[in-house]
Nucleic acid binder design. Structure first.
Length: 468
DNA sequence: CTAGGGTTAG
């Protein structure tokens, strides 16, 4: 006796959904292939977990595009759940993902809070935090009410772009909408205030919370650390443990980062060593990178190398870049070359090792090596996009590159930089020209530092913001 | 049986 096809489809849908939820993405997609092999058609319940699996599998982007084509053929696009899952799936793909998500989003006749949140997080993932905040406002303008998912997503982008004023307005809206009691909203407020430097506000939200979770404590620990208050981070961590809240993988990243910035080598070592025996958390590459940074700043390169040699996890490029940074500071060319080699093995297109090595050799006045590294970089076709700095004044972001004269007030800005440079010179500042990149003529080197993008941004900030 | 979020150094 054969079961009705509809019953079998429901059974497949349930199985695919369970696999997707459990993170068994390949299994979910395999079930779909099996389903089609039996001549069964996917419906509006099949597609969302499938799209999710295809996106999270980190496989070829064509997998999502293929499902997109399939759902169009099957006439499933009008289902809001399906279209939302499609926007989210595209938004999770690296590179052109956010643009593809936007294209699907633009075509949708009806959008709800999930659609908008999917677009918003996709933009945030692509680093387009300004566009993400604009998407939040677009949602509000179109009459869709933000909820306890949309508000944290928006606040996260406010935090990432250090847009404190925008963050405050989202905070006010969240209160109006009655979303304050949600833990997710409170957590994102703590993080947003801490990241934008409003530590008192972060603490006020934190203190007013009736209950806190690991994310709450972690947000505050990271917040203090990022504002140069490493010791306060450690105090918060102690309170966290006392309160009975268990730290997780992310908490330890924040904690070790705090130790690193505060130069608390012993505390950092002790916390790192407590991870496995006390909390059963195996240190990942992220923790090793923090430890290398911590030990490297203290000049303990051998100990850092030792730690890496004894590590049991797979180390990634960030770990070796941390070591490279420490080698640059402490002028250890031999170890730096080995670390650079490791980075290249993991990511041949990464420009960081070239810049680091070039800096290191130029400080050591080893011009031959500087030239060799530069030539190597050129031969391998690796390019480094120039760094930039920005400053927000009255809601407008002013962006600067090295020796940038594009700004309408460039003349004034340069005069301000001269004035600043003169004032710090009087205070005893000596420019460290050895750090500048080396394919420039020596007399340019000092200028590259003098009109560094950060100096231009600071100078403009001083000009544009009236003294308090 | 279906879709989105909040904590992650350099």
């Amino acid at each position: 006796m054969a079961l009705p096809a509809g019953t079998v489809v429901v059974a497949y849908n349930a199985a695919i959904s369970r696999c997707a939820r459990a993170g068994l993405y390949a299994r979910a997609l395999a079930l779909f292939r099996e389903m089609r092999g039996r001549g069964l058609r996917a419906d509006e319940y099949t597609l969302p977990p499938l799209l999710n699996s295809a996106a999270q599998l980190r496989g070829p982007p064509e997998a999502v595009a293929a499902l997109h084509a399939l759902l169009l053929r099957a006439g499933l696009a009008p289902h809001l759940h399906v279209a939302n899952a499609l926007v989210d799936a595209y938004a999770r793909l690296p590179h052109a993902g956010a643009a593809a998500a936007r294209a699907v989003f633009d075509e949708m006749p009806r959008r709800d809070v999930v659609t908008w949140t999917s677009l918003l997080t996709g933009l945030a993932r692509a680093g387009a935090h300004g566009a993400a905040v604009r998407a939040y406002h677009g949602m509000v303008a179109s009459g869709v009410q933000p909820d306890e998912f949309a508000v944290p997503a928006a606040l996260s982008s406010c935090a990432a772009s250090t847009a404190l004023d925008l963050g405050r307005s989202v905070h006010a809206a969240a209160v109006r909408l009655g979303l304050r009691p949600f833990r997710s909203v409170e957590n994102s407020l703590v993080s947003m205030y801490a990241k934008t430097g409003a530590l008192r506000d972060a603490r006020a939200v934190f203190d007013a919370m009736p209950a806190r979770c690991t994310i709450t404590w972690t947000a505050l620990i990271v917040g203090y650390a990022q504002n140069g208050r490493g010791r306060q981070s450690l105090e918060v961590y102690a309170d966290m443990v006392r309160s009975g809240c268990r730290p997780d993988y992310v908490t330890f990243i924040g904690l070790l980062f705090a130790c690193s910035h505060a130069g608390l080598v012993d505390a950092g070592r002790a916390h790192f060593r407590s991870m496995v025996p006390v909390y059963g958390i195996a240190p990942g590459p992220d923790h090793y990178a923090c430890m290398v940074d911590l030990l490297g700043r203290a000049g303990r390169l051998d100990e850092a190398m030792d730690l890496l040699n004894r590590s049991s996890t797979e180390l990634d490029a960030t770990v070796w870049k941390s070591l490279l940074g420490a080698c640059r500071v402490h002028q250890n060319a031999e170890l730096a070359e080995r670390a650079a080699e490791m980075v290249w093995r993991l990511d041949p297109a990464d420009a960081v090792p070239y810049v680091m090595l070039s800096n290191l050799y130029s400080r050591a006045r080893r011009w031959g090596d500087v030239a060799r590294i530069r030539a190597l970089m050129k031969a391998r076709g690796v390019t480094k996009e120039p760094g930039c700095s920005w400053v927000g004044v009255n809601g407008i972001t002013h962006l600067f590159h090295v020796e940038d004269r594009d700004h309408p007030r460039a003349a004034e800005i340069y005069r301000k930089v001269e004035e600043m440079t003169e004032r710090i010179r009087v205070e005893g500042y000596v420019p460290d020209t050895d750090w500048a990149l080396q394919d420039e003529v020596p007399e340019w080197r000092q200028r590259g530092l003098a009109y560094h993008s950060e100096r231009l941004a600071v100078a403009f900030g001083l000009l544009a913001v009236p003294a308090a």
